[in-house]
């Protein structure tokens, strides 16, 4: 099983990288770009546990280590290994 995890800064937290990329896209002529948020994408390969267990354990991993929940939020999906 593969956990695909996205970690992004919470709304209201200044994303200085996102701001710089936003500026660059506007400068390139993409005037329609209203906002850019940068985040992290992680793939965590799991074996030997059920999907239900994986839900609980991956949530735990995000809370403990993968995200700093003071400023970041996370979401993930579980998919069969390719």
């Amino acid at each position: 099983m593969l956990a695909k995890i996205h970690v992004t800064l919470k709304n209201g937290v200044l994303d200085s990288q996102g701001k710089a990329v936003h500026q660059a896209l506007n400068d390139l002529g993409y005037a329609e770009v209203e906002d850019v948020r940068l985040g992290k994408y992680m793939e965590v390969a799991l074996s030997g546990i059920s999907e239900q267990e994986a839900q609980t354990r991956v949530t735990e991993m995000c809370e403990k280590l993968l995200a700093n929940t003071v400023i970041e939020s996370y979401r993930f999906s579980l998919e069969p290994a390719e």
Partner: peptide, 16 residues
């Protein structure tokens, strides 16, 4: 701050 002994967090400098 990561260990929870101190509150808050340290992020990328504003000017990158």
């Amino acid at each position: 701050v990561e260990s929870g002994l101190l509150p808050g967090v340290l992020m990328d400098n504003e000017g990158q």
